[in-house]
Design a binder for these strands. Structure first.
Lengths: 240, 240
DNA sequence: CGGAAGCTTGAATATGCTCAACACGGGTGG
DNA sequence: CCACCCGTGTTGAGCATATTCAAGCTTCCG
């Protein structure tokens, strides 16, 4: 049962935003109805399929996007084609490097996604105007920095088995943020190839380690993508 | 020949700040003399030797610090002792995770450092008050995020040889930011052990790769720490 | 039913690690 | 002033882990 949340001046809240899941989360939560109205005049909702590129590395940025649904992957590529996933973004994250004219990563839809696209100018103007908004954008950047540093430990110091366990554990806690002792059930938002690029491994190694976790009864796999973890704590101890 | 820079109301600029190298850089550059005066009443200068720990992981934070001289390393440690350096900070960076009650990394002086220590309360109060200050802090966070992501590519996808070359290239460009075609000469701010922890390698592998670069004439080593790079472009191509 | 894409499994190989010995340089004390 | 010692760095040999290359298997779709 879903009810529309009440704003103080709900009549002033743009129609599109009234039913938006992200209205009170992410950056929009920092805006008053008036600011929301200004912003909403410039935004548009877009759906993208898995695999579509939203922004290329080193290309000019013309817009930010709110992630409303689905998973986005940020990647970097070496000249010879070696690829590394450097970040994953979920709803209600804001997409786009604030205050940069060029993207420093390539941005791609990992699953089907819904986005609320915001022109660069519009959001940056509003940020100069609204300290709470800028603050929220900063808090997201800081959270991403924490996550990146956590991941550096995984990339630099964990074994293949620990890397794969860490990845599964991260997805499990992100998608299904129940208790650590609980059972979890979810669909992997990434292909084996994406997981490999995220972990700095080959797809074969990822596959072998997943098979091993399955053989050891730590996870159950149906249909490649669908995973069940009977006991998250048992997965947790495999993360190193 | 060093001259003291003129502020509009130089008389109002605190004595300590007047001769401070970082006065117009880092976060202090975003402050007017009045704000600087308020802040300076709470700060104190501290010198730390290489190896001293400034902040422990998961411990409460009571202060921020401006790095005035030297190199700081941010590390994370796994339960079994495996260590990963997740960031390096140079002058005039601000030390300390903004708006967090606990540190998420362990902070250690990699060389002898001079710091300007700022109580947590004082800086955060000023940030709420001054959008330009908060903006500058955000810009640093975003730069650190960019750097972390660049480093994830190195950790995840580069060979040992490329990792070591990348590290030397990064230090060379940071310490001696001359042209890429130029000759560079500098002291390594990190021990072999720190370099290994930064690159996700062992000290033996780091040593071997440095020896190889030396044998190939890409770098010259005097005295372990002191490095000369006759041609940065030749080092650059080894970074992958 | 056939084909393609994505995934798994196996065998051989290479890259970086472990363990161990040794070298260098700086400081200390006889 | 030299001998010694300790921390730090280098080098070598054997080994383990993850990669490469190759084949075969699922699942999805036409």
């Amino acid at each position: 049962m879903q009810t529309v949340r009440k704003d103080i001046h709900n009549s002033e809240v743009p129609v599109l935003c009234q039913s938006c899941e992200a209205r009170h989360q992410g950056i929009c939560g920092a805006l008053n109805p008036e600011q929301l109205l200004t912003l909403s005049k410039a935004t548009r909702r877009v759906r993208k399929d898995a695999g579509e590129e939203l922004m290329a590395d080193a290309m000019p940025i013309s817009s930010y996007s709110n992630v409303l649904r689905g998973v986005i992957k940020l990647t970097k590529v070496l000249e010879d084609g070696r690829q590394q996933v450097v970040g994953l973004q979920f709803a209600p994250d804001l997409l786009g490097r604030p205050f940069a004219s060029e993207s420093r990563v390539s941005v791609e839809a990992a699953s089907q996604v819904d986005l609320c696209v915001i022109p660069k100018q519009a959001l940056e103007a509003l940020m100069l105007d609204s300290a709470p908004l800028e603050h929220r954008v900063m808090m997201q950047a800081l959270r991403e920095l924490d996550e990146a540093r956590d991941w550096m430990v995984t990339l630099g110091r964990k074994t293949a088995a620990e890397k794969v366990a860490s990845f599964l554990f991260m997805i499990a806690s992100h998608i299904d943020p129940t208790d650590e002792e609980a059972r979890a059930k979810f669909d992997l938002p990434l292909s084996r190839s994406d997981i490999a690029d995220f972990l700095g491994l080959t797809i074969e190694t990822v596959s072998r380690q997943i098979s091993k976790l399955k053989a050891d009864g730590v996870i159950e796999i149906v249909n490649y993508r669908h995973v069940t973890v009977p006991d998250l704590a048992r997965l947790r101890v495999r993360c190193g």
